[in-house]
Structure formats: structure tokens, C-alpha cells
Simulated assay, not measured.
Amino acid sequence: MSKPFFVEIKGVQFRNKGAYLMLLACLDGLKAEPNVQLVLSPGPNLPYPERARLGAWQKLSFRRGGLDLTPWIGKLPMQGLFRRYGMLCEQQVDLVLEASGFAYGDQWPLRFLQNTAKEVVRFAKAGKPFIFMPQAFGPFESEPSKAAMRDIIQHAALIFVRDPVSLQHLQSCVADLPQSVVLTPDFTIGLTAKANHEVPTIDGPYAALIPNNKVVSKFNHADAEQQRAEYINAFAAAANKLNEKGFQVMLVNHEGKEDAVLCNEIAANAKCQIVQIEDPLAVKAFIGKAELAISSRFHGAINALSQGVPCIATSWSHKYHAMMNDFAMAEYCVEQLTEQSLLASLQQLLEHKTELSLTLKQKATELKQKNAAMWQRLYQVIK
């Protein structure tokens, strides 16, 4: 029997559909390696029943504040017992794929970045690859954050960067980036949508509107709560316009409880239905059948654009404009969201919807080829 190849996928979860899609994209890309055994760390959004359905081993780790006992757990004389119960320590992991999407920069706690840097260094010393899957980075303004990121850049086997702005943020830490830092697009583009029983049957053309609570969260913007009413008004105005044009409006919850609250607030101000689908590939299938989309969720927009569905993205970070530019849709990225700006963009999209769909299908093919090249590069490192 061949030795198992234990791969931990970090930064993913089951509640946020984008994070779930990145988990599935990792598993899809690894299917060429027959001995891969999935490893996941327990967490509130990675509950045991769902981990078990994927056959995942449980990663043993312990971090509380500045205390990190994870590297010491492997020194305990109980590894055989742990393994019998489906648990592995860090030292037993052969490869880490870090797929957080956007979790490294000054807007997040410094300790998280520093803990990851220490882990990357440990893997490098053990001769095991630690790979950052395509994601956004930065900014890094403080010297401690730059120092931690330098350790990551110098010791990670590969760092796939999703956009040029993130690349510049990495260059602020290391001016001459090594060849292990590679610019490449989002890697969920090629995932095949799969409808299931959760997908509602809609009689007639519909538009998918995908809100995002982060846009009105104090965590991301100091004045975001002040923008909440305007955000709801903008989405409601777009829904009303779409209704006038003969589209049914579907508010798609792409995340969970907090997005559900936002969906309810928008639905109270416009005629629309709320759609809640748990399976991320079924969500993609539903969005793919829409005539058009308006999305504040990064992977909600990817789900639309990658299937030829014209989409307006409302932005709260640099990653949105770069993603829309990948699909030749940069002019449909609304960075200053108001009722007027969204309606103006929507009117333009409605006027050019047919030709935009054709362009998107061509761009999706090109980006899928770049995804394939990314996986070829990754396999060169781990073989």
C-alpha cells in the first residue's frame, strides 16, 4: 500500500461559499495525486460532521493569544493513539495549501501573520512545501508586519498572487521578489457548477443580486455602518429597476447569517426573493442561469463571470477591480457605491448584455488555461 500524502488545506470553511469553493478547487486540483489524504483544522465554520463527509483527518493544534503549542504537540509520545482517532500533528503533514483568499495584511491581527510566518519557516526547515494558493495580500505598513511577510516570502515554496496591487504590497516587503512568487488569477474559475434539489426553479428570466455584510462592517471600514442605509437603498433601487425591465430579482445569500440579515433588509425595500443554497457548486449553478448579476461577494462575481453571466461588482478592496479586469469588466466595478452609480452601471450593462456575455466566455477560457498552468507549476514543486 502506498504511503499516504497528507495535505492540509488552510483558510477554508463551509459557511462562506467562496471559502468552500476554494476548498473544492484545491481538492479538484489534487485529484491527479492518488495518495492525497485531506487534513483540516477544527473550527466553528469547519464542524466535524462536514469534515468527516470529506474523509478529512483532524489537525491537532493549539493557539490562544500569543501561546502556540502546535509545534510541540508532535513531540508527545502519543502519536499512534492520536492517529487511531483520526488526528494528526503538524509534523505529520506533508504539504500545506493556504487558501484564505484575503487574510494577510494590516487590516488583520499582526499575531495571525506572525504565527503563519513561524509555521512557514518550520515547514521549510523540515523540507516540506508550504504553498499560498491564489489570494490577495496587503497592505503591509508596519515593520513587524513587513518582517513577518519577509519570512513568508523567503521560506514559502510558492506564493500565488491574485492581482498586481497585492504584488506591489509584497514588493514593499521584499523589493526583488523570488521566482516562487507568481501572479495568477483566482483558481475557482474552472470549477464545474452542479445543480441539486436546493436550486429553485424560476419561471422566466431572473437577475442574481449578491450582497456582502463586510461592506457595512466596522471591521473593514470605520464609517461602514453609516453607509448601510445607502447600500440597502442602492440594491433596492437596482432591484426595482430590474423588476421594471421584466426580470425576477433573486437575492442570493453567498455567506450565512450576517448576509441573511442584509438580504432581509433589502427585500423589505424592493420586490425580490431570497435564495439560500448550501452546496457551493449548486449556488454556482443557480447564478450561472441568471441573465445578469450584481455582486458584493468576490466569488459571487467569479461564479457569474466564469459562466458568461454579465456582472457588476461593488468593491470594498483592491481585489475586486483586479478580478473584474481579468474578465475585461473593469468598467463595471463600482468602487463608490451609491444609488446613482449602481443604476448608471446597471443601465450600461443592460444595453451591452449580449456582447458582454460573448466576451466573458472567451475570457473564462483564457483564465482556465492560466489555472491549469498554475497547477502544473505547483506539481513541479511537490513531486
Rank of each mutant, 00 (worst) to 15 (best):
S317F: 02
S295C: 08
A301T: 05
Q307A: 04
S345K: 14
L337P: 15
I302E: 00
V283Y: 09
Q340E: 15
E335S: 07
A293V: 04
K271I: 02
L305F: 04
I312Q: 15
I312C: 15
S296R: 08
S345Y: 02
V334Q: 12
C311L: 00
S315Y: 13
R297E: 09
D326F: 10
R297A: 07
H318E: 11
I287Q: 10
T338Y: 11
A290S: 05
K319F: 03
I287P: 13
H318D: 10
Q340L: 15
G300T: 11
S296N: 06
I302P: 00
V309A: 07
A304K: 00
Q307D: 06
N303I: 10
V275H: 01
A328R: 15
S295H: 04
V309C: 08
L342R: 03
A270Y: 03
L281C: 04
S341E: 03
Q273G: 14
N325S: 07
E335Y: 00
A270N: 06
A293W: 03
Y320N: 14
V275Y: 03
Q347W: 14
A313K: 13
S317I: 06
L346C: 12
E291I: 03
A270P: 03
T338D: 11
A285S: 00
C311Y: 07
K284I: 05
Y320D: 07
M324C: 11
Q336I: 11
K284Q: 08
Q340N: 12
T338C: 11
C311F: 06
L281K: 01
S345G: 10
C272L: 00
K289T: 11
K271H: 06
